[in-house]
Nucleic acid binder design. Structure first.
Lengths: 142, 142
DNA sequence: TCTTGACCTCAAGCGAGCTTCAATTTGCAA
DNA sequence: TTGCAAATTGAAGCTCGCTTGAGGTCAAGA
Protein backbone atom coordinates (compact mmCIF):
# COMPACT_ATOMS: atom_id res chain seq x y z
CA UNK A 1 0.00 0.00 0.00
CA UNK A 2 1.85 2.98 -1.33
CA UNK A 3 1.06 6.20 0.39
CA UNK A 4 0.97 9.52 -1.34
CA UNK A 5 2.80 12.66 -0.44
CA UNK A 6 1.04 15.98 -0.34
CA UNK A 7 2.28 16.98 -3.78
CA UNK A 8 0.83 13.85 -5.30
CA UNK A 9 -2.50 14.33 -3.59
CA UNK A 10 -2.45 17.91 -4.75
CA UNK A 11 -1.72 16.91 -8.29
CA UNK A 12 -4.38 14.24 -8.37
CA UNK A 13 -7.08 16.23 -6.60
CA UNK A 14 -6.43 19.61 -8.12
CA UNK A 15 -6.28 21.19 -4.67
CA UNK A 16 -3.26 23.15 -3.53
CA UNK A 17 -1.21 21.77 -0.68
CA UNK A 18 -2.27 24.77 1.34
CA UNK A 19 -5.89 23.76 0.89
CA UNK A 20 -5.14 20.21 1.97
CA UNK A 21 -3.44 21.46 5.12
CA UNK A 22 -6.37 23.76 5.71
CA UNK A 23 -8.78 20.85 5.35
CA UNK A 24 -6.74 18.91 7.83
CA UNK A 25 -6.86 21.77 10.29
CA UNK A 26 -10.66 21.56 10.08
CA UNK A 27 -10.60 17.80 10.55
CA UNK A 28 -12.19 17.10 7.22
CA UNK A 29 -9.27 14.98 6.05
CA UNK A 30 -6.28 13.52 7.86
CA UNK A 31 -2.86 12.29 6.91
CA UNK A 32 -2.22 8.64 7.46
CA UNK A 33 1.18 9.14 8.95
CA UNK A 34 4.25 11.28 8.72
CA UNK A 35 7.59 10.62 7.18
CA UNK A 36 9.58 12.95 9.31
CA UNK A 37 7.45 16.05 9.23
CA UNK A 38 5.92 15.27 5.89
CA UNK A 39 2.39 14.06 5.55
CA UNK A 40 1.75 10.71 3.95
CA UNK A 41 -1.74 10.05 2.68
CA UNK A 42 -3.62 6.86 2.13
CA UNK A 43 -4.88 6.78 -1.47
CA UNK A 44 -8.42 6.67 -0.12
CA UNK A 45 -8.04 10.32 0.73
CA UNK A 46 -8.70 10.98 -2.93
CA UNK A 47 -12.15 9.46 -2.67
CA UNK A 48 -12.78 11.43 0.43
CA UNK A 49 -11.71 14.59 -1.34
CA UNK A 50 -14.04 13.80 -4.20
CA UNK A 51 -16.85 13.42 -1.71
CA UNK A 52 -15.87 16.72 -0.15
CA UNK A 53 -15.92 18.47 -3.51
CA UNK A 54 -19.33 16.96 -4.09
CA UNK A 55 -20.58 18.37 -0.84
CA UNK A 56 -19.12 21.77 -1.54
CA UNK A 57 -20.72 21.95 -4.96
CA UNK A 58 -23.94 21.02 -3.24
CA UNK A 59 -23.51 24.13 -1.12
CA UNK A 60 -22.41 22.74 2.23
CA UNK A 61 -19.73 24.21 4.40
CA UNK A 62 -16.60 22.31 5.28
CA UNK A 63 -17.90 22.15 8.82
CA UNK A 64 -21.11 20.52 7.65
CA UNK A 65 -19.11 18.13 5.54
CA UNK A 66 -16.81 17.21 8.38
CA UNK A 67 -19.86 16.47 10.49
CA UNK A 68 -21.76 14.32 8.03
CA UNK A 69 -18.68 12.58 6.67
CA UNK A 70 -17.53 11.58 10.12
CA UNK A 71 -14.20 12.02 11.80
CA UNK A 72 -11.15 12.02 9.61
CA UNK A 73 -9.29 9.02 10.93
CA UNK A 74 -6.88 8.72 8.10
CA UNK A 75 -7.33 4.98 8.47
CA UNK A 76 -8.35 2.43 5.88
CA UNK A 77 -11.10 4.43 4.24
CA UNK A 78 -13.87 3.41 6.54
CA UNK A 79 -16.12 6.41 6.16
CA UNK A 80 -18.73 6.13 8.82
CA UNK A 81 -21.22 8.46 7.30
CA UNK A 82 -24.36 10.00 8.63
CA UNK A 83 -26.94 8.67 6.19
CA UNK A 84 -29.83 10.58 7.66
CA UNK A 85 -27.87 13.80 7.51
CA UNK A 86 -26.99 13.18 3.90
CA UNK A 87 -30.51 12.55 2.83
CA UNK A 88 -31.61 15.70 4.64
CA UNK A 89 -29.00 17.47 2.59
CA UNK A 90 -30.37 15.97 -0.56
CA UNK A 91 -33.77 17.34 0.41
CA UNK A 92 -32.20 20.75 0.84
CA UNK A 93 -30.60 20.47 -2.58
CA UNK A 94 -33.97 19.58 -4.06
CA UNK A 95 -35.55 22.62 -2.46
CA UNK A 96 -32.77 24.73 -3.87
CA UNK A 97 -33.41 23.25 -7.30
CA UNK A 98 -37.06 24.23 -7.12
CA UNK A 99 -36.11 27.72 -6.09
CA UNK A 100 -33.58 28.09 -8.89
CA UNK A 101 -36.17 26.87 -11.35
CA UNK A 102 -38.44 29.73 -10.37
CA UNK A 103 -35.53 32.13 -10.54
CA UNK A 104 -34.58 31.03 -13.98
CA UNK A 105 -38.08 31.64 -15.21
CA UNK A 106 -38.14 35.04 -13.57
CA UNK A 107 -34.80 35.97 -15.12
CA UNK A 108 -35.89 34.89 -18.57
CA UNK A 109 -39.01 36.89 -18.20
CA UNK A 110 -37.12 39.98 -17.15
CA UNK A 111 -34.80 39.56 -20.11
CA UNK A 112 -37.66 39.38 -22.54
CA UNK A 113 -40.51 41.41 -21.12
CA UNK A 114 -41.03 44.71 -22.88
CA UNK A 115 -43.01 46.43 -20.18
CA UNK A 116 -41.45 49.86 -19.75
CA UNK A 117 -41.07 49.23 -16.07
CA UNK A 118 -40.69 45.75 -14.67
CA UNK A 119 -42.18 46.73 -11.44
CA UNK A 120 -45.46 47.14 -13.27
CA UNK A 121 -45.52 43.87 -15.15
CA UNK A 122 -47.99 41.62 -13.34
CA UNK A 123 -46.40 38.43 -14.58
CA UNK A 124 -43.09 39.52 -13.23
CA UNK A 125 -44.54 40.69 -9.96
CA UNK A 126 -46.11 37.34 -9.42
CA UNK A 127 -42.99 35.34 -10.16
CA UNK A 128 -41.04 37.61 -7.94
CA UNK A 129 -43.47 37.12 -5.11
CA UNK A 130 -43.26 33.36 -5.52
CA UNK A 131 -39.50 33.30 -5.65
CA UNK A 132 -39.01 35.59 -2.72
CA UNK A 133 -41.63 33.93 -0.57
CA UNK A 134 -39.78 30.78 -1.27
CA UNK A 135 -36.43 31.98 -0.20
CA UNK A 136 -37.98 33.58 2.81
CA UNK A 137 -39.44 30.31 4.00
CA UNK A 138 -36.32 28.35 3.32
CA UNK A 139 -33.82 30.66 4.77
CA UNK A 140 -32.63 27.92 7.16
CA UNK A 141 -30.36 25.82 5.00
CA UNK A 142 -28.64 26.36 1.71
CA UNK B 1 -44.36 61.52 -4.74
CA UNK B 2 -43.51 60.70 -1.19
CA UNK B 3 -39.95 59.62 -0.69
CA UNK B 4 -38.92 57.10 1.90
CA UNK B 5 -36.31 57.46 4.56
CA UNK B 6 -33.78 54.76 5.17
CA UNK B 7 -35.68 53.34 8.12
CA UNK B 8 -38.76 52.90 5.99
CA UNK B 9 -36.86 51.24 3.20
CA UNK B 10 -35.22 49.03 5.77
CA UNK B 11 -38.55 48.09 7.27
CA UNK B 12 -40.15 47.37 3.94
CA UNK B 13 -37.23 45.50 2.41
CA UNK B 14 -36.05 43.62 5.44
CA UNK B 15 -32.51 44.87 4.92
CA UNK B 16 -30.66 46.73 7.63
CA UNK B 17 -29.79 50.35 7.03
CA UNK B 18 -26.15 49.35 7.09
CA UNK B 19 -26.80 46.99 4.20
CA UNK B 20 -28.54 49.73 2.25
CA UNK B 21 -25.61 52.06 2.74
CA UNK B 22 -23.30 49.26 1.73
CA UNK B 23 -25.30 48.68 -1.45
CA UNK B 24 -25.08 52.34 -2.21
CA UNK B 25 -21.32 52.27 -1.77
CA UNK B 26 -21.23 49.57 -4.44
CA UNK B 27 -23.47 51.56 -6.73
CA UNK B 28 -26.17 48.96 -6.76
CA UNK B 29 -28.78 51.35 -5.42
CA UNK B 30 -28.81 55.11 -4.94
CA UNK B 31 -30.69 57.58 -2.84
CA UNK B 32 -32.87 59.99 -4.68
CA UNK B 33 -31.81 62.99 -2.69
CA UNK B 34 -30.82 64.06 0.76
CA UNK B 35 -32.73 65.91 3.38
CA UNK B 36 -29.81 67.39 5.18
CA UNK B 37 -27.53 64.42 5.49
CA UNK B 38 -30.34 61.93 5.41
CA UNK B 39 -31.01 59.76 2.41
CA UNK B 40 -34.40 59.99 0.77
CA UNK B 41 -35.39 57.13 -1.46
CA UNK B 42 -37.78 56.95 -4.34
CA UNK B 43 -40.28 54.13 -3.67
CA UNK B 44 -39.00 52.39 -6.80
CA UNK B 45 -35.92 51.46 -4.84
CA UNK B 46 -38.02 48.70 -3.32
CA UNK B 47 -38.52 47.09 -6.70
CA UNK B 48 -34.87 47.42 -7.39
CA UNK B 49 -34.08 45.80 -4.07
CA UNK B 50 -36.41 42.94 -4.89
CA UNK B 51 -34.58 42.47 -8.16
CA UNK B 52 -31.30 42.51 -6.30
CA UNK B 53 -32.51 39.87 -3.88
CA UNK B 54 -33.58 37.82 -6.85
CA UNK B 55 -30.13 38.04 -8.36
CA UNK B 56 -28.46 37.17 -5.11
CA UNK B 57 -30.60 34.09 -4.62
CA UNK B 58 -29.65 33.15 -8.15
CA UNK B 59 -26.04 33.22 -7.02
CA UNK B 60 -24.73 36.45 -8.50
CA UNK B 61 -22.45 38.86 -6.72
CA UNK B 62 -23.47 42.41 -6.02
CA UNK B 63 -20.89 43.48 -8.58
CA UNK B 64 -22.51 41.30 -11.21
CA UNK B 65 -25.87 42.67 -10.25
CA UNK B 66 -24.72 46.26 -10.41
CA UNK B 67 -23.39 45.56 -13.88
CA UNK B 68 -26.44 43.87 -15.34
CA UNK B 69 -28.93 46.10 -13.57
CA UNK B 70 -27.28 49.24 -14.85
CA UNK B 71 -26.12 52.30 -13.02
CA UNK B 72 -28.05 53.30 -9.95
CA UNK B 73 -29.37 56.66 -10.92
CA UNK B 74 -31.87 57.01 -8.15
CA UNK B 75 -34.13 58.57 -10.72
CA UNK B 76 -37.64 57.62 -11.73
CA UNK B 77 -37.19 53.89 -11.86
CA UNK B 78 -35.93 53.62 -15.39
CA UNK B 79 -33.93 50.46 -15.08
CA UNK B 80 -31.88 50.20 -18.20
CA UNK B 81 -31.10 46.55 -17.95
CA UNK B 82 -28.73 44.39 -19.86
CA UNK B 83 -31.10 41.83 -21.35
CA UNK B 84 -28.42 39.74 -22.95
CA UNK B 85 -26.52 39.61 -19.69
CA UNK B 86 -29.61 38.51 -17.86
CA UNK B 87 -30.42 35.73 -20.23
CA UNK B 88 -26.81 34.54 -19.98
CA UNK B 89 -27.37 34.46 -16.26
CA UNK B 90 -30.49 32.41 -16.72
CA UNK B 91 -28.44 29.94 -18.74
CA UNK B 92 -25.96 29.77 -15.93
CA UNK B 93 -28.77 29.11 -13.47
CA UNK B 94 -30.04 26.33 -15.69
CA UNK B 95 -26.62 24.74 -15.79
CA UNK B 96 -26.47 24.99 -12.05
CA UNK B 97 -29.85 23.29 -11.81
CA UNK B 98 -28.62 20.40 -13.92
CA UNK B 99 -25.56 20.09 -11.76
CA UNK B 100 -27.55 20.13 -8.55
CA UNK B 101 -29.84 17.48 -9.98
CA UNK B 102 -26.88 15.18 -10.43
CA UNK B 103 -25.64 16.06 -6.98
CA UNK B 104 -28.96 15.27 -5.41
CA UNK B 105 -28.99 11.87 -7.03
CA UNK B 106 -25.43 11.24 -5.91
CA UNK B 107 -26.25 12.27 -2.36
CA UNK B 108 -29.29 10.05 -2.23
CA UNK B 109 -27.28 7.19 -3.51
CA UNK B 110 -24.58 7.71 -0.92
CA UNK B 111 -27.21 7.83 1.79
CA UNK B 112 -28.73 4.56 0.71
CA UNK B 113 -25.97 2.46 -0.83
CA UNK B 114 -24.83 -0.37 1.39
CA UNK B 115 -21.48 -1.00 -0.27
CA UNK B 116 -18.95 -1.19 2.55
CA UNK B 117 -16.85 1.40 0.82
CA UNK B 118 -18.39 4.03 -1.40
CA UNK B 119 -15.27 4.42 -3.37
CA UNK B 120 -15.88 0.92 -4.68
CA UNK B 121 -19.50 1.27 -5.68
CA UNK B 122 -19.57 1.55 -9.45
CA UNK B 123 -22.86 3.40 -9.52
CA UNK B 124 -21.50 5.98 -7.19
CA UNK B 125 -18.22 6.28 -9.01
CA UNK B 126 -20.05 7.01 -12.20
CA UNK B 127 -22.31 9.65 -10.76
CA UNK B 128 -19.38 11.25 -9.08
CA UNK B 129 -17.48 11.36 -12.32
CA UNK B 130 -20.43 12.97 -14.06
CA UNK B 131 -20.98 15.51 -11.36
CA UNK B 132 -17.38 16.49 -11.04
CA UNK B 133 -16.72 16.62 -14.75
CA UNK B 134 -19.63 18.91 -14.86
CA UNK B 135 -18.43 21.33 -12.27
CA UNK B 136 -15.01 21.20 -13.82
CA UNK B 137 -16.31 22.33 -17.18
CA UNK B 138 -18.50 25.01 -15.72
CA UNK B 139 -16.09 26.48 -13.29
CA UNK B 140 -16.46 29.91 -14.96
CA UNK B 141 -19.72 31.17 -13.60
CA UNK B 142 -21.83 30.23 -10.64
C1' DT C 1 -34.96 77.04 21.94
C1' DC C 2 -33.38 72.87 23.52
C1' DT C 3 -33.15 67.97 23.51
C1' DT C 4 -33.20 63.74 21.64
C1' DG C 5 -32.80 60.11 18.82
C1' DA C 6 -32.34 58.85 14.18
C1' DC C 7 -29.08 59.49 10.83
C1' DC C 8 -24.38 60.35 9.02
C1' DT C 9 -19.21 58.80 7.84
C1' DC C 10 -15.24 56.19 8.14
C1' DA C 11 -12.72 52.47 9.88
C1' DA C 12 -12.41 48.18 11.65
C1' DG C 13 -14.16 43.51 12.39
C1' DC C 14 -16.26 38.95 11.13
C1' DG C 15 -16.67 34.15 9.01
C1' DA C 16 -15.73 31.21 5.20
C1' DG C 17 -12.31 29.30 2.51
C1' DC C 18 -8.27 29.66 1.19
C1' DT C 19 -3.39 31.72 -0.22
C1' DT C 20 0.88 33.77 0.86
C1' DC C 21 4.85 34.86 3.48
C1' DA C 22 8.74 34.07 6.46
C1' DA C 23 11.50 31.26 8.88
C1' DT C 24 12.88 26.59 9.43
C1' DT C 25 13.46 21.60 8.69
C1' DT C 26 14.39 17.60 6.04
C1' DG C 27 14.19 13.74 2.48
C1' DC C 28 16.62 12.34 -1.23
C1' DA C 29 19.76 12.63 -5.45
C1' DA C 30 24.52 13.20 -6.65
C1' DT D 1 28.17 13.99 2.94
C1' DT D 2 26.52 17.75 1.04
C1' DG D 3 23.06 20.64 -0.99
C1' DC D 4 18.81 21.89 -2.61
C1' DA D 5 14.00 21.38 -3.77
C1' DA D 6 10.15 20.62 -1.24
C1' DA D 7 7.83 20.21 2.98
C1' DT D 8 6.61 22.20 7.65
C1' DT D 9 4.45 25.75 10.90
C1' DG D 10 2.08 29.93 12.33
C1' DA D 11 0.56 34.19 11.34
C1' DA D 12 -1.20 37.38 8.34
C1' DG D 13 -3.70 38.66 4.18
C1' DC D 14 -7.59 38.45 0.77
C1' DT D 15 -12.58 38.55 -1.16
C1' DC D 16 -17.55 38.93 -0.17
C1' DG D 17 -21.24 40.71 2.06
C1' DC D 18 -22.28 42.83 5.65
C1' DT D 19 -22.25 44.54 10.82
C1' DT D 20 -20.44 47.20 14.53
C1' DG D 21 -18.44 51.05 16.88
C1' DA D 22 -16.81 55.66 17.59
C1' DG D 23 -17.60 60.21 17.03
C1' DG D 24 -20.36 63.80 14.81
C1' DT D 25 -24.70 66.14 12.62
C1' DC D 26 -29.23 67.56 12.38
C1' DA D 27 -34.73 67.50 11.89
C1' DA D 28 -38.45 67.58 14.58
C1' DG D 29 -41.25 67.45 18.79
C1' DA D 30 -41.95 69.44 23.70
Amino acid sequence: MKSLDIAEVSRRSGLKPSALRYYESLGVIAADSRKGLRRQYDPSVLDRLALIALGQRAGFSLQDIAATLGAATGAEAEFELDRQGISDRADAVDRRIRELTLLSRALRHVAQCQAPNHAQCPKFRQMMAEALTWSGENRQKL
